[in-house]
Amino acid sequence: MNDKYSWLRQGTKGLVCTPGKFVIDPIQPTDLAVITHGHADHARSGHRHIIATPETIAIMRARYKDIRKESTTPLDFGVAKKINDVEIRFASAGHILGSAQVVIDYRGTRVVVSGDYKRRADPSCEPFELVPCNLFITEATFGLPVFSHPPADTEVLKLLNSLKKFPDKTHLVGVYALGKCQRLLCHIRKHGYTEPIFIHGAMRPLCDLYKSFGYELGELVQVTSRVKKITAGKIVVCPPSAIAEKWSRGFVSPMTCLASGWMRIRQRVKQRQIELPLIISDHADWYELTTTVREVGAKDIWVTHGQEEALVHYAQTIGLNSAPLSLQT
């Protein structure tokens, strides 16, 4: 649609940068992959070579045992690197540990690929860096005005208050194992909660990894069938799916909680049969998305990952060229 940026296109493997000969967050094995962050829908295994932040590489190596050190190039935030005909650098995205925006400079034009990002404070990762650019390719997971995330602190207080009110109930909190889990733990600890927190086995390796990067998560106890008898009035964190699985049986009087931006919508809460929704998200809400779209100063806005339509409409109403990324083929 836009010739100016014909060197960037959405291919079957992902977002392809032709003069750089790399693909950003490829969904299929590729020769050279630039990875924004460690979540599985962005960081897959099987690429010949990977460029990512050191934290992201550590996360990928913890998750995929087949990634060899020689096939990775760690690149710190702010350090420029020439790749074929373009220059790239990473800017912090504030999404999870090591999450980056990819800044691409090519023939005097700057493109920023946001990856997943958020603007608000997160004790478990670096804050978002605003990088002025000509084309901004933004995510839009929560790209509707209905999504406004409350401060994480008020949501954590909801959980802590519920523990006091229902000291006989095991608070089973569903969270993603990477990022959300450690962020929630940091927030809970910040509120002075010093009790041991019980974790599902799947959380263990990534919690250890965060600790190795210097994040304090407090005392964590892995759940075993013996432990299930003593969790009344305590916090147990597990992947969201585990709440509905056999794993969650045997806990004393469970109360189901879920930490997610989707918990803003009542129907979602009811549908997932969640009793205590915690609206905590790793993604930008509508306010953050629209603010960022204005602040990066880009004339062109491409939108991907989520509710593209509303954000494209918004960008157009403020006079920007905007389209869903899926159309850039």
Binding site: L144, P145, V146, F147, S148, Q267, E309, A310, H313, Y314
Partner: peptide, 24 residues
């Protein structure tokens, strides 16, 4: 008060008028 198109998309998504209006 709100761009009607954005409201429409929001209402479609949420499905409940009181909830949508309270959110946007």
């Amino acid at each position: 008060r709100v761009d009607p198109e954005l409201f429409r998309l929001s209402y479609d998504y949420v499905g409940d008028l009181a909830e949508t209006v309270s959110l946007v």
